[in-house]
Simulated assay, not measured.
Amino acid sequence: MIRFISAVFLFSQLFFSISFAQSAFRVVPLGVKGGIQEGNLSAYMIAPSGSEAYICLDAGTLNTGIRKAIENGAFSVSEDAVLKNYIKGYLISHAHLDHISGLIINSADDTTKSIYAFPNTLETIRNHYFNWESWPNFGNEGNGFLLNKYTYKPLIEGKELKIEQTEMSVKAYKLSHSNPYESAAFLIRTGDAYVLYFGDTGPDEVEKTDHIQAIWKDISPLIKAGKLKGVFLEVSYPNEQPDNKLYGHLTPKWLMKEMNKLSELAGKENMQKLNIIITHIKPAGNNEEKIRAQLRENNLLRLKLVIPEQGVGFGL
């Protein structure tokens, strides 16, 4: 039985939990942290409501997250069935280990499916991971004997692509993750409902790019129309982290600056209807406590902030 989460509206509108009721998407977080906890790294299964055909947004942790999801009632089948049958493919924002290690370690037990990413990310996976030196070559390209379990599917920025074996499509955007290194954001669509997922990224002002602003311009009409159901956006460090040591990440201060930019395009009243899912918190020391407090203190837009829990599913 799926574990339902009641909507809880705090008086000061600081953090919210959300339910599956009348949702367009089901989300099951397999990993939510940005480091240290190797059994809880970025990975989010998402499918249209009522469907068991999921895409996995990044894959830092798989098996541990699947096991926790089953314990929490998100799935009523075995760990093996979730990995092999429910996950139909992977959207990888970039090839850092905290976003792909679960995919690599579980590859021997996985089934045939596709890995979607920008070409430079696929190149890193092909040349540095599935190469018979770091790990057997489970891909369809690259060094040595090809086991052909995974097919590499290169994404083209701004071009919508059907996600095989699902009722979803994806449009990818480039992000800056400590310029000149790249990451990606994914706009997932089912019918006329959308979810936007960001991989790791620094603020435009620090990264000296306009990548995030370009995304805001593109998706603001969806917010106005009520079609964008949620935005997954990282907050890795508390505000005390110096800008020259962000390494392509956000803080609560920078998150709210970006939200203000988006509200100028989409309208403050529309922003308050949008779920903002906070990802990639680095839990070292008391970072998580600080980040939660700073998000509360800086939420002048009264955004619906959601901090997901590993293995606890929710709807968007």
Rank of each mutant, 00 (worst) to 15 (best):
I2V: 06
A7Y: 09
L10H: 12
Q13V: 01
L14Q: 15
S17N: 10
A21I: 10
A21W: 10
Q22L: 07
A24E: 13
V32S: 11
K33W: 13
S42K: 12
M45P: 09
M45R: 13
I46S: 12
A47S: 13
S49Y: 09
G50F: 06
Y54M: 08
Y54E: 01
L57H: 11
L57E: 13
D58Q: 12
T61Y: 10
L62S: 08
N63F: 07
N63G: 02
A69Q: 08
A69K: 09
N72F: 15
E79P: 14
I87V: 14
G89C: 04
H94C: 10
H96K: 09
L97E: 11
L97Q: 06
I104R: 01
I104A: 11
I104D: 03
N106W: 03
S107N: 05
A108E: 12
A108H: 11
A108K: 11
T111N: 09
T111L: 12
I115V: 13
Y116A: 13
P119H: 11
T121Y: 05
L122K: 04
R126S: 12
N127G: 02
Y129I: 11
F130Q: 09
E133Y: 14
E133N: 11
W135L: 02
W135Y: 13
W135F: 12
G142D: 06
N143D: 01
G144I: 02
L146A: 06
N148Q: 13
K149S: 06
L155N: 07
L155G: 11
G158C: 08
G158R: 07
L161E: 15
K171R: 13
Y173H: 10
L175N: 08
N179W: 02
A185L: 06
F186T: 04
T190C: 07
L196E: 06
Y197N: 02
V206L: 06
V206S: 03
E207D: 04
K208C: 03
K208R: 12
I212N: 03
W216H: 14
I219N: 09
I219W: 11
I219F: 12
P221F: 11
K224Y: 00
A225W: 08
G226A: 07
G226P: 07
L228S: 12
V231A: 05
E234F: 00
E234A: 11
S236G: 00
P238H: 04
Q241M: 10
D243E: 14
H249M: 00
L250W: 02
L255Q: 02
M256F: 08
N260T: 13
N260W: 05
N260M: 12
L262A: 09
E264W: 00
A266W: 01
G267D: 03
K268V: 14
E269T: 08
N270Y: 00
L274S: 00
N275G: 00
N275K: 06
N275D: 10
I276T: 03
I276L: 08
I277P: 01
I277N: 01
I291L: 06
R296S: 15
L301A: 07
R302V: 01
L303S: 05
K304N: 09
K304C: 02
L305S: 04
L305D: 04
L305M: 10
V306D: 02
G313A: 15
F314Q: 03
G315I: 01
